[in-house]
Design a protein around this nucleic acid. Structure first.
Length: 281
DNA sequence: AATTATGTTGCGGT
DNA sequence: AACCGCAACATAAT
């Protein structure tokens, strides 16, 4: 899935586009992508769209919500009267053809506009939940990486007895929310810490550097509208630009911007992990 | 053509 | 309990 910057970009744009609209109809093409009662969304007005962790919360006027996790390949594409917002023409077929092969849910609004939930791999979900149920779900997540609650002392306390590689610790959303594979790799490179290093062996100095680096790369990601490595698109179909600034993610065999060494790739927790063997020794 | 990888996370096993 | 590996699924790349 999109990580925090990608989800933030989508939630912000969605807010501008659909707050105030009323849902007239929901068409579910793939049951696995949707749970809850359609009756609780039909006829309801959208009063807000916010992001928490990597989750989008669409708040409805009846105190219910559509909670959405995009997982790996989920995407929202918004169409107003068949005119693409922004007037762009993204080249990918799965965006030009709507509903497409991977459209799992379509939300129809009373003004004729539509919101498509596409999800190639069908890992993502849309759940209709009460306010209380939403609170319960979100309570499982650690503080968002880009908030003041995520501090060096907080992280130190969370990892001081964890022997897992530090990269897996910062990708654990119960510890800190919002960091996925791309930004984990890049944050560790910026902080000059080996992704394999056991979490509990980090010095206080390293923890401080890591927290600052994570905030920096995540905030840069937000500023650039996320990273479009593959499936991620903005709500109106356009790409993000963080991939143009990526430090190490996906750059195996290329040159480290800091020292000129060749970037290597290993597997950690089953995920591709990119790092500079010299800067992050 | 079969194998491997993919922006996530939750499960079942050790 | 902490940790590891893999499964959920579809596709593209090697």
């Amino acid at each position: 899935m999109p990580e925090l910057p990608e989800v933030e970009t989508i939630a912000n744009r969605l807010k501008d586009l659909i707050v105030g609209k009323t849902i007239s109809k929901v068409v579910v093409m793939r049951e696995k992508s949707f749970s809850g009662d359609v009756a609780n969304v039909k006829g309801q007005k959208i009063i807000d769209v916010i992001r928490r962790a990597k989750i989008i919360q669409i708040k409805l006027s009846n105190n219910f919500n559509i909670l959405v996790h995009l997982k790996m390949t989920g995407q929202f594409i918004y169409i107003d009267d068949d005119v693409r917002v922004g007037g762009g023409h993204p080249s990918a077929d799965w965006i030009n053809e709507l509903p497409g092969k991977h459209t799992r849910i379509t939300y129809f609004f009373t003004d004729g506009s539509k919101l498509f939930f596409n999800d190639m791999r069908v890992f993502g979900w849309n759940r209709v939940l009460s306010n209380d149920e939403v609170r319960e779900v979100l309570a499982e997540y650690g503080p968002d990486v880009n908030t003041d609650k995520f501090t060096a002392s907080y992280l130190a306390e969370k990892i001081n007895n964890k022997s897992v590689p530090i990269k897996l610790a910062i990708m654990d959303n119960a510890i800190v929310s919002g960091i996925g594979n791309i930004y984990a790799c890049d944050a560790l490179h910026l902080a000059k810490i080996s992704p394999q290093k056991s979490a509990k062996l980090l010095s206080n100095e390293e923890i401080k550097r890591l927290v600052e680096a994570a905030k920096l790369v995540i905030n840069l990601g937000i500023k650039l509208g996320g990273a479009t490595m593959d499936n991620y698109r903005h709500v109106d179909g356009f790409s993000g630009r963080y991939q143009e600034k990526v430090r190490v993610y996906g750059r195996v065999g290329e040159v480290c911007s800091e020292c000129g060494s060749i970037i290597e790739k290993v597997k950690l927790g089953g995920r591709g992990t990119f790092y500079c063997p010299v800067c992050q020794a």
